[in-house]
Each structure stands twice: as structure tokens, then as C-alpha cells.
Simulated scan of single mutants.
Amino acid sequence: MAAPRIDIYTKFGCGFCVRAKALLDSKGAAYHEHDITFGGKERTEMMERAPSARTVPQIFIGDLHVGGSDDLQALDRAGKLDALLAG
């Protein structure tokens, strides 16, 4: 089974974004980063995918909306992140 696509919506200077990307990097997970610092179509896309999201990062693994950095860290602590990344 192929690894799912990972999308992470970020903003410049966001420490939580850096922390989430560092965790994904430590797992060897390839991800697609969408910088929404200046809004635009990618911010609109994020809002369509996660209508209640007001902060960054917003992380999607496949079709699953993981949430933010704390949510990603919690999945890792619970031992569930590796399975999600593997598909």
C-alpha cells in the first residue's frame, strides 16, 4: 500500500508549523507544504477542507484531517502516527 499524501498548511514564522514539520521529517514522511501567509487560493482550500480551522498548521494525512501540531504530537505519543503515515 502506498503512503498517503500529507498536506500541511503553514505560515511564515509559525513555531508550531516548524515543530510539526520536524516531527514529520523525523519520521521520513514526505509532505506537501502550503504557505498561506498571504492568504490566497491555498488558504481558501484549507478552509474548505477544515471549515472550523483558524490556526496553523493544519495537517491532513490522506483524507484525514489530523488538526494542528499538538494533535500530530498526540498521535505520535499514542503510537498511532506511524500507522497513519504508512497508509
Rank of each mutant, 00 (worst) to 15 (best):
G28P: 08
Y31K: 06
A78R: 10
F60I: 09
A2P: 15
M46R: 02
H65S: 12
D35Y: 12
D63Q: 14
A20W: 02
S26C: 05
A20L: 05
Y9E: 04
P51Q: 07
E33T: 05
A30W: 00
M47N: 13
S26E: 12
P4N: 06
M1R: 12
Y31F: 14
A53T: 11
V56Y: 07
I36A: 03
L23E: 06
P4V: 08
D76H: 14
A20T: 08
L24E: 02
G28L: 07
A74S: 11
Y31P: 04
P57F: 01
E45V: 00
L24M: 10
V56W: 07
F60A: 07
T44F: 00
R77C: 03
A50S: 15
C14T: 09
S69F: 03
T37Y: 04
C14H: 04
D7Y: 01
H32M: 11
E33N: 10
L81C: 03
G67S: 09
F16W: 14
A86D: 13
A74C: 01
K11Y: 00
S52T: 15
A30F: 01
L64T: 14
F60T: 09
P51E: 06
I6H: 09
E45A: 11
D70V: 05
D70R: 08
T44H: 04
P57W: 01
A83R: 11
R19Y: 00
G13I: 07
F60P: 05
V18C: 01
I6S: 06
A53L: 11
E45M: 01
T37Q: 03
G62N: 07
D71L: 05
P51L: 06
R5V: 15
F12H: 08
R77K: 15
K41F: 00
F16M: 03
A20P: 10
A29N: 10
D63F: 01
P51I: 08
H34N: 04
G62V: 05
D76Y: 01
G68W: 07
K41M: 08
M1D: 09
T55V: 11
A78F: 03
P57Y: 03
R77G: 03
P57T: 12
I61L: 06
G15I: 02
H32D: 14
